Amino acid sequence: MDRTQLADFLRRCRTRLSPADVGLGPGARRRTPGLRREEVAQLTGMSTDYYTRLEQARGPRPSRQMLTALARALRLTDDERDHLFHLVGEEPPRDRSSSGHVRPGLLLVLDRLYDTPAMVVNDWGEVLAQNPMAAALSGDISARPPGKRNMIRRYFTDPDMRRLVPPEDQEEHARSHVANLRAVLAARPDDLAPAALVAELRAASQEFAALWEAHEVAVRRSAVKRFLHPVVGLLELECEVLLSSEHAQRLIVHSARPGTESYERLELLRVVGLQDLAARG
């Protein structure tokens, strides 16, 4: 691990970004260009002290999960992400479809969607990035360990996630999740990650196991979805799914039609939900 070069690379990548580039407010007046260290730490889910030690060339060796988080927070290109891994003495992920690296351009679009819930997921349900509105709608995924950020796993094992869906819609949601996972596993039978998720959920959920045996297949596409939020109530949202085929990633955007009750409630969520996130931050 080359701590000196790693520290220099992190500093240069941090100073070339502005808060607006990563979806943050401008904050207090800045004496130097770029993001602050505490902002990078916030975006990656690490402590400020941990990140500071990395920039001072005295930190511990980051894990692969932490390197992936840093690459995402600093909006690194694929080549820059690989360089980051090499500096730490790690082999970069070679399977782009499951590496968890989100292209900077896709993150830029996500950051601009400040008033509607949006997130980037891979094709088997791993949430790779989300904006604050998505966190306000369905929970802050960055607060979860790297292995607990899968939306399909959450739907079948987390009662809080299940309660966000009206009871009369839950069966259809479950069928959609399983049918999509079927399609992914058939397309990439040698990819260990989705196969492991299927094995885990077949053992953990009788509902999942029964749906899996039904052998329905359907790729997730745009649709209308309803959410039963504990604060703002029922939301009927247009769910648009934009595909990035090169990386098997999807940008999922939820919006409400202007003039509807759901639109007004989404506006309320933007105020109340974001205040709650700020208070917890």
Rank of each mutant, 00 (worst) to 15 (best):
M1W: 12
Q5P: 00
L6T: 00
A7Y: 01
D8N: 02
F9T: 02
F9C: 01
R12Q: 07
C13H: 15
L17M: 13
S18E: 15
S18C: 09
A20T: 04
G23T: 06
L24Y: 14
G27H: 09
R29E: 05
R31E: 14
L35F: 13
L35T: 09
L35A: 03
R37V: 12
R37H: 10
R37K: 14
E39D: 06
A41Q: 08
Q42V: 00
Q42S: 05
L43D: 00
S47Y: 09
S47C: 12
D49L: 07
Y50W: 15
Y51P: 08
R53T: 04
R53S: 12
R53L: 07
L54W: 01
P60W: 02
P60K: 06
S63H: 10
S63M: 10
M66Y: 11
L67T: 03
R72N: 12
L74W: 04
H83G: 00
F85W: 13
H86E: 11
L87H: 05
V88C: 15
E90G: 03
E91C: 00
P93V: 01
R94E: 15
R96Q: 11
S99E: 09
H101A: 11
H101N: 05
P104R: 08
G105A: 01
L106C: 03
L108D: 10
L108F: 03
L113M: 13
D115H: 15
P117I: 11
A118Y: 01
V121D: 00
N122C: 15
W124N: 00
G125Q: 05
V127P: 00
N131R: 04
P132M: 01
P132S: 11
P132R: 13
A134G: 10
A135M: 07
A136S: 14
S138K: 08
D140A: 06
I141F: 14
R144V: 09
P145H: 09
G147L: 11
N150E: 01
I152K: 02
R153E: 14
R154Q: 14
T157S: 00
D160C: 01
V165D: 03
E168K: 08
Q170F: 08
H173A: 06
R175T: 10
S176L: 10
R182L: 04
R182V: 01
R182F: 04
P189E: 09
D190M: 09
D190L: 03
A195S: 02
A195N: 12
A199N: 10
L201C: 03
A203W: 10
S205Q: 02
Q206H: 12
F208Y: 12
A209L: 08
A209V: 10
L211D: 05
W212L: 07
E213S: 04
H215W: 01
E216D: 13
V217F: 06
R220F: 12
R220N: 04
A223Y: 13
K225E: 07
F227R: 07
L234S: 01
L237F: 11
V241L: 02
S244E: 15
E246A: 15
A248K: 07
E261I: 14
E261L: 15
Y263Q: 10
L269C: 00
R270H: 11
R270E: 13
V272I: 15
A278W: 11
A278D: 14
